[in-house]
């Protein structure tokens, strides 16, 4: 079993569905962070069988909307002085801005760079969103 030391201050993204850790790492642009980041994959888990974990030291701000879109099973632990001071359970976001394009090719958000694609949750079960501008529904699957 690989051992990774606990962190003094930062965040731990825990209970990531096995296989989605790398996607989260990429989508949240973690390679560009100027601080230590550890991505653990296929870690044994009593509850999940296997899971991925990401630890980031000296960094506590994270895009929970994007995380929620990728994996709602995730828990984010905020660490201060080696203790968990906040536990964030993720849910699918109700409002989303700028995280994915509108699926309607005729939508203004796909041609006018000034406009940020903005969505409201339409159906949680199949992760679909209504566009604020054209009102078309986009099914979201972050890859």
């Amino acid at each position: 079993m690989i051992e990774v030391a606990s962190i003094r201050r930062g965040l731990v993204v825990d209970h990531i569905t096995a296989g989605k850790g790398l996607l989260i790492f990429n989508k949240l642009n973690m390679a560009s962070l100027n601080c230590p980041v550890v991505l653990l994959m296929n870690v044994p888990s009593q509850r999940m069988g296997r899971k991925d974990i990401i630890k980031v030291e000296n960094f506590t701000e994270i895009d929970t909307a994007m995380l929620g879109l990728i994996d709602t099973k995730v828990t984010v632990n905020i660490i201060e002085n080696e203790h968990v001071v906040e536990k964030i359970k993720l849910a699918i976001p109700h409002e989303v801005k700028g995280l994915f394009p509108c699926g309607n090719p005729r939508c203004v958000t796909n041609i006018d760079a000034y406009v940020t694609p903005t969505f409201h949750l339409h159906d949680e079960a199949n992760c679909s969103y209504t566009c604020e501008y054209c009102e078309e529904i986009t099914k979201v699957e972050i890859r």
Binding site: R106, C107, V108, T109, I111, D112, E132, Y133, C134
Partner: peptide
């Protein structure tokens, strides 16, 4: 009037 859907809202 605009061919792009949502343009007047913008």
């Amino acid at each position: 009037r605009h061919p792009r859907e949502g343009a007047p809202k913008v």
